[in-house]
Design a protein around this nucleic acid. Structure first.
Lengths: 125, 125
DNA sequence: CTGTCGTGTGAACGTCTGCTCATACGTTCA
DNA sequence: TGAACGTATGAGCAGACGTTCACACGACAG
């Protein structure tokens, strides 16, 4: 514990290089629950199967069975993923007899998808 | 293997309920490389530590050491995450002596963050 | 009622992921 | 040149994740 200023190889320095910038950046961080919700939203979007589901639902509303057909996944897998998307408020659904017909919950999803699409298109230039 | 039409409990039906909707949705899906890139972008955004990094960089550019201070993570962890963000073209950096100063790569990141933020704010109403 | 359909769900399992630890590399300064 | 600094990276490990499998449940037809 002696020689305090020399034994922090992996810790980097305890004090910041640019204290002002660190303070400014720290203030800009979201509170914990907001940060958690943000991560949840993006977590819902990071799986290829869920992205396919959302892209499909951008075009038209679909029941679970048809979503399975569109994505090429099993009905069970789709149902599990829809549960995630429902919990994140990214999709909504209505019952139609024995079927459950899903649709996008709001337009934020479309914007998120289109922005990400723009990004990947741009970096290919 | 007989009784072909009765033993597909988990497979759901092989033909779609709403063939037209399925065809329309299927056409709207992105090609495989685009889908992969989209998933990569959102995968980069779904980790709390990386979200903190990007939020911090929305305010000001920062070196690795200061990012570690802002996020409360180790320098190694931040460096690993920055590698992910670099590979996804979400951040860029310049060398300044021994330091590496990182910044957001483009404005798509800001839009993505703000849209997700709007979404989580809205569903709390 | 009985059987089938469409869907939801829990357990199990293999894979992916993000962390720590240790170490290496390039830069700066004495 | 040698030491400290800032950063990058690989190995290893614990936990999260997505799938399959098996099954339960409500709705509808016969």
């Amino acid at each position: 514990m002696s020689r305090r200023s020399h034994d922090r190889s992996a810790e980097c320095r305890a004090f910041a290089v640019d204290a002002a910038a660190v303070a400014e950046a720290r203030d800009s961080l979201h509170d914990e629950t907001t940060a958690r919700s943000l991560a949840d939203v993006f977590s819902a979007l990071c799986d290829p199967t869920r992205l396919q589901i959302l892209t499909a639902l951008s075009a038209t509303e679909l029941c679970v069975c048809d979503l399975a057909a569109v994505t090429g996944s099993s009905q069970s897998a789709v149902s599990h993923q829809l549960r995630v998307l429902r919990d994140r408020n990214l999709v909504a659904y209505r019952r139609d007899g024995k079927r459950a017909v899903y649709r996008l919950a709001d337009d934020h999803v479309r914007v998120l998808l289109s922005q990400a699409l723009e990004h990947v298109a741009e970096e290919r230039a």
